[in-house]
Design a protein around this nucleic acid. Structure first.
Lengths: 336, 336
DNA sequence: AGCGATAATCAAAACGTTTACGTGTTAACA
DNA sequence: TGTTAACACGTAAACGTTTTGATTATCGCT
């Protein structure tokens, strides 16, 4: 690989001049600039980013810390970040935490060793995650919490209005005349709690009674949990809700299966609506859901991060909150 | 950030010694080693990877070049690669090509500038992709083609047996007594062609006639194309296949919708089977499909790449080919 | 005591950039 | 004609590592 020195020799100038034409950091006369550019072309020279990074204490890399790229909720966010990074000539490092404390700590180290210029954190709050954020901040690495822990209010955040998600879901069922409405959520999850609060507001604003027996919380946002909770919900053959909101699409699908296994037709016997639209609009028949603009959120997070990196290093943290959008599907049917 | 020099001062040794205990590149006496380790701990020292990389001409980074992480076929592969990389203390850079020539070329440059130690390419063959591979090879960067162009036989490859995918799909329909079997594929795609070949073999080995009118090729592996081709297939109300193989799950779902819109029941009127199982086993009712072990393929690609990087730089290219597996679902019903 | 061998450590030169500072040349002006 | 400002460019010192010879101390042996 040719170095800047080779270019300098070939163009009969000093390396400082080559650097100048490369970065435009100071004026270079037309003729020499052309000579240098020609030399660069002929040698196929490409600057070495490690050397540059060493000198400038920057890597031109940002990282995305997320639970797992295999979870269909995240790839669109990652893509949004990457698109922004690409335009600004940054690369994206990917860090799957798998919710594993050890793994988070290792990545925490790695990101510092790599001189990562900024980090987007998309992960539920945990000791390790907060420790990671603290450590990065201490070393001056900008952070954006993308759909991250609400408690991380000391950094920029990009969030969806989760409360509104729940509201849209339950009021949709309400508008279709459902009176007994259930909710499937996840215990200990802030996201689930917020969606539940919105769910309640939806009921109240339509004057609908809340049946506590129809609110079930499980251990995770998985299809299995959706199925398990669904079974519980339908175990009493004399009484079940005729409309159910699930805290996310994957749970809703598990729930759907439970309904089918209990001999119920969807939406004839029971209406279903999910949240997040990772899968709802792909399914056939299409499922009702509340779309979360994950790609757009990724872009915004990327933009905010780059702004911090290149512009106002300091400044009070901002919070960007996007609104969800209802997706009508074929799993909600009007009652009475 | 403390540097190796700070550690050296604190431990009262030279930086060379610190480096020695860090990397174990040569013996250090017990007492000094302990002093150095203590100094490292107290200062919270972390080596600077850019500096190390500059000196060693290595970055400890590998890249995954893929069409788009939003395509559900790829995240599992990426995850497999990342898992292997993580274990070996490598980081993964992500490069979405979007099938865009310009973007591929930019990434081609970037990967060299970054001193990427190795690259996994998961992308259909195109001029730009081959140019990228050539350029990387020229600079001694190991490459693994993961589900990549068949024509890239000059590098290590990890593939699924695509022909077998098609075979499994069509023989499943055959075994269920279908006689008029259709195929939805993609024009100009090697993957689609191989699956079609297997499809043909499946028909032949069951003594079933091929109806050319029931073989339709579209422009891409999308749901829209699946729907469009499906419409064409069902446009003649007097004659349509009673079993159809789609070249991937997403197309199969589009096809499914077309069938519903044409007033056909699945699987009562027409049986469907997809390929790749990105979505089939999530759907309700579950769709029949042929599973491709994408996560495992990603791991194998990662392993092979790291082996090239750290061990036998040279050596004749190897090809690893994995077998697909049938996923039974509720979209195939026996006939006659 | 003198010698060579061995082990432990150090000093300094790389790696390929950027950048602060210095130097020379030209043009403008009094 | 000298002084000064502007411009174009070069020199050399960083950045934080690894690595290649030295160098020193210790020991065994004659």
């Amino acid at each position: 690989m040719p170095t800047i020195k080779d270019v300098a020799v070939k163009a009969q100038v000093s390396i400082a001049t080559v650097s100048a034409v490369l970065n435009g950091t100071r004026p270079v006369s037309e003729p020499t600039r052309l000579r240098v550019e020609e030399a660069i072309r002929q040698l196929g020279y490409q600057p070495n980013r490690m050397a540059r990074g060493l000198k400038q204490r920057k890597s031109q890399m940002i990282a995305h810390v997320l639970p797992s790229v295999m979870n269909p909720f995240f790839p669109a966010m990652l893509k949004g970040i990457e698109d922004i990074a690409y335009e600004a000539d940054y690369s994206v490092l990917i860090c799957n935490t798998e919710m594993d404390e050890k793994r988070i700590r290792r990545y925490s180290q790695l990101l510092l060793e790599m001189q990562t210029d900024g980090v987007v954190i998309t992960a539920p709050g945990s000791d390790a995650i907060h420790e990671l954020a603290r450590s990065l901040r201490e070393h001056g690495v900008p952070i954006v919490a993308l759909h991250g822990p609400r408690s991380m209010d000391y950094v920029d955040r990009v969030l969806v209005n989760d409360e509104e998600c729940g509201y849209l879901a339950s009021s949709t069922l309400a508008k279709h005349g459902h009176q007994e409405i259930g909710f499937l959520g996840v215990d200990g999850s802030t996201t689930s709690r917020l969606r539940y609060q919105g769910f309640i507001r939806g009921l109240q604003s339509h004057g609908i009674e809340l049946y506590r027996d129809y609110v079930l919380l499980g251990q995770g946002f998985s299809q299995e949990e959706g199925y398990r909770l669904g079974q519980m919900l339908f175990s009493n053959p004399s009484s079940w809700p005729n409309g159910i909101v699930a805290a996310n699409d994957v749970m809703a699908i598990g729930l759907w299966e439970a309904a089918l296994n209990a001999g119920l037709e969807v939406p004839e016997d029971v209406s279903l609506i999910g949240i997040d639209n990772t899968l709802a609009s792909i399914m056939r028949p299409q499922m009702a859901s509340v779309e979360i603009p994950t790609y757009e959120m990724g872009r915004l997070a990327g933009e905010q991060l780059l702004a911090r990196i290149t512009k106002n290093q300091e400044g009070t943290p901002v919070t960007i909150r996007l609104d969800p959008r209802l997706i009508t599907g074929h799993t909600v049917q009007s009652r009475g």
